[in-house]
Design a protein around this nucleic acid. Structure first.
Length: 459
DNA sequence: TCTGGGGTCCTAGGACCC
DNA sequence: TCTGGGGTCCTAGGACCC
């Protein structure tokens, strides 16, 4: 908890629907529902006019249509939303460089990181008023709700309280009084399951929660959740605003209009999904080590199967083959409702020019071709400038460094074949991946492994 | 016509290593 | 050969968020 109300939370009101009303004047003042229009679609965002009829986010589209038949039902246009979102995030960064987007329509700002001198409640309130005007201007008329307080929790709850087009600055010291009468479900992280558990413990409000000991919460909800909740209950929240968080996974999934049981068709679908994931990996210049297949069956039960490669890849063939194998481990004969493919364990390096032919013929390949996940065999290489970061102790595969190293690895060991343009392929050696002998050749080691042209000692 | 799509974080058990 | 503790990695599932 900070001494001043320096954490700002901004939330664009009914964002997707508001953008549609901005771009189509005939929709202004009318109920608008944005979401999936197929037989299994759900509502992403409803305009406030549609909410008056009981339409809510995550509601089945069929029910939304029943409640509000005269609404406009639209498919989301993410490209447009992203563009509008970028304009808002840029406006926030004018206030302070420390901006943490939570989604396209929401972000935290740490005002202490900016150039604002006066962070008194009244000064912050007038700053927030200006910000709302700025948002209106850069978005072409969208409204935002803003909450400001001494912590993320307070700022977020404050922005919710005055929606839409709201503004609330919670003065330091007033936090507990504000929170205690509120239902526990206002705390982000307390969803239906946690709320029900707490209800059975006799906990209904944040005030009730504050009277329960941390030990009891940990016993009921697990260590991390229990401890976090115990702290939040007394408004003790010092979580920092974190700008530029890196993605941890990338995934793509599709719910089918009708369940699919045909294995051949499922095979085609999984390949398409894998290709889409690979396109995104390539676009974002990432590779990943772990491939996960998600299967939602006809009865909504959901299963995942995952496997981890010896090293990161963005190779469509490798990921597709693995995805197919993982799918085959699930009984899909009764019908599949949703299929998804994801990649995690991301590394920020890129596949550039292939010299797969060279790599494929090395002894390094033969040496671990029988490793558990031989899918990594064909993973490729790149020029030094965009090469992988080699982290000692981590696995790296088939990479060329400097004048010509090829690195291979499998499951905790690194197989290295050294070669240069003049001497050709050298001997193959296998090291434990954290072998200090390799350290001088790591790109992380100062004074340039990349500049070295002499091979490490041949074993 | 029950229940989207893209994420994050946590837990728990087992493997494996020292 | 047995026992055991700690750490890390992997996998599957679940809660939760927008």
């Amino acid at each position: 908890m900070r001494p001043q109300p320096s954490i700002l939370h901004l939330d664009l009101d009914a964002f997707f629907a508001a953008v549609e009303q901005r771009d189509k004047p005939s929709l202004r003042g009318k109920p608008v529902v944005v979401g999936g229009l197929g037989p299994r679609g759900v509502v992403a965002t409803a305009s406030y006019e549609a909410r008056a009829f009981g339409v809510r986010s995550a509601m089945r589209m069929a029910e939304a249509r029943a409640r509000c038949p005269h609404a406009a039902f639209l498919s989301p246009r993410f490209t447009i939303y992203r563009r509008t979102s970028r304009a808002v995030m840029a406006a926030l960064r004018e206030l302070s460089p420390v901006v943490e987007p939570l989604s396209l329509d929401e972000a935290y700002v740490d005002l202490t990181a900016g150039t604002i001198g006066d962070l008194s409640p009244s000064a912050v309130e007038s700053l927030a008023r200006d910000l709302k005007r700025t948002v209106r201007r850069v978005t072409g008329g969208l409204t935002a709700s803003i909450g400001v307080g001494t912590s993320k929790l307070i700022a977020k709850i404050a922005s919710d309280l005055r929606k839409p087009d709201g503004l609330l600055v919670v003065t330091p010291g007033a936090e507990t009084e504000l929170l205690s009468p509120m239902p526990v479900s206002v705390i982000p992280g307390v969803g239906p399951a946690t709320a029900e558990r707490l209800r059975r413990m006799g906990v209904h409000t944040v005030g009730d929660l504050g009277r329960v000991g941390e030990e009891e919460l940990v016993r009921a909800l697990g260590k991390a959740h229990g401890q976090a909740l115990a702290r939040l209950a007394c408004a003790g929240d010092d979580r920092p605003v974190v700008a530029e968080r890196e993605a941890k996974s990338i995934s793509v999934e599709d719910t089918f209009d009708h369940d699919i049981a045909d294995p051949a068709l499922l095979g085609v679908v999984i390949e398409r999904l894998a290709s889409r994931v690979c396109e995104r990996l390539a676009r974002e210049r990432l590779s990943g080590r772990t491939v996960t297949v998600k299967v939602r069956l006809y009865d909504f039960t959901t299963h995942t199967r995952s496997a981890t490669l010896a090293g990161p890849t963005d190779d469509d063939r490798v990921i597709t083959r693995l995805a197919r194998r993982l799918l085959s481990e699930v009984d899909t004969s009764a019908g599949v409702r949703l299929l998804g493919v994801g990649v995690s364990g991301l590394a920020d390096w890129v596949q550039e020019d292939l010299f797969g032919a060279l790599v494929d013929e090395t002894d390094a390949d033969a040496e671990h071709a029988d490793a558990e996940h031989s899918e990594t065999e064909r993973v490729t290489s790149g020029p030094v400038q965009t090469g992988p970061r080699w982290v000692p102790g981590a696995d790296v595969i088939h990479r060329r460094y400097g004048a010509g190293w090829v690195w291979g690895s499998g499951l905790g060991r690194v197989t290295v074949r050294f070669e240069t343009a003049t001497t050709g392929p050298g001997p193959v050696r296998t090291f434990a991946s954290d072998d200090p002998e390799l350290a001088p050749y790591s790109p992380l080691t100062p004074h340039s492994p990349l500049a070295r042209t002499d091979p490490p000692p041949a074993g």
